[in-house]
């Protein structure tokens, strides 16, 4: 299964810096699928899922940003009470830690979609699939 690629961008806590990133994406015609910002007092890490991560990576670097590619998983969760808890239960039982996660705005189906990063990605993928939890193909995410 092809890994879903997330782009992380270093952003200083200064006026207009986030816009600096979105402007490059706009000018390149890149669509954002999901995003989150982890912030500290001085800087933030912008995490992005986009339709064309390779092109976005290249263009952001060309424009002087520090960018990193990270493997993540897109995990489908039943959109009902207990749906997410069910996923966490499986992970907990198998000793898998979530480094961070955030949600997609758009849905792939009638289920909720989460971006998840684990300490052990390979093991996490296997456990999720073994427990019949849906992990969406990277290409499908890029093409939502």
């Amino acid at each position: 299964m092809e890994n879903l690629i997330q782009l992380s961008v270093f952003i200083e806590n200064r006026k207009g810096r986030l816009r600096g990133v979105t402007k490059v994406l706009k000018d390149t015609g890149i669509d954002i699928r999901a995003l989150s910002i982890a912030e500290t007092q001085d800087f933030g890490v912008l995490r992005l899922i986009v339709n064309n991560p390779d092109l976005a990576y290249e263009k952001l670097r060309e424009n002087g940003f520090i960018v990193k590619k990270t493997k993540v998983l897109a995990v489908e969760v039943d959109d009902r009470p207990g749906g997410f808890d069910n996923v966490l239960e499986v992970l907990e039982k198998n000793n898998i830690n979530i480094e961070y996660m955030y949600a997609f705005v758009e849905k792939h189906s009638d289920k909720a979609l989460l971006v998840m990063r684990f300490d052990d990605m390979e093991k996490a993928l296997k456990i999720l699939l073994d427990n019949k939890i849906n992990v969406i193909e990277a290409q499908k995410i890029y093409n939502i």
Binding site: Q6, S8, F10, K68
Partner: peptide
């Protein structure tokens, strides 16, 4: 100035 060696997708790594 931050560079690719220091930068990580995880804030705790940078910190």
């Amino acid at each position: 100035e931050v560079n690719e060696t220091i930068f990580s997708d995880e804030v705790k790594e940078i910190e």
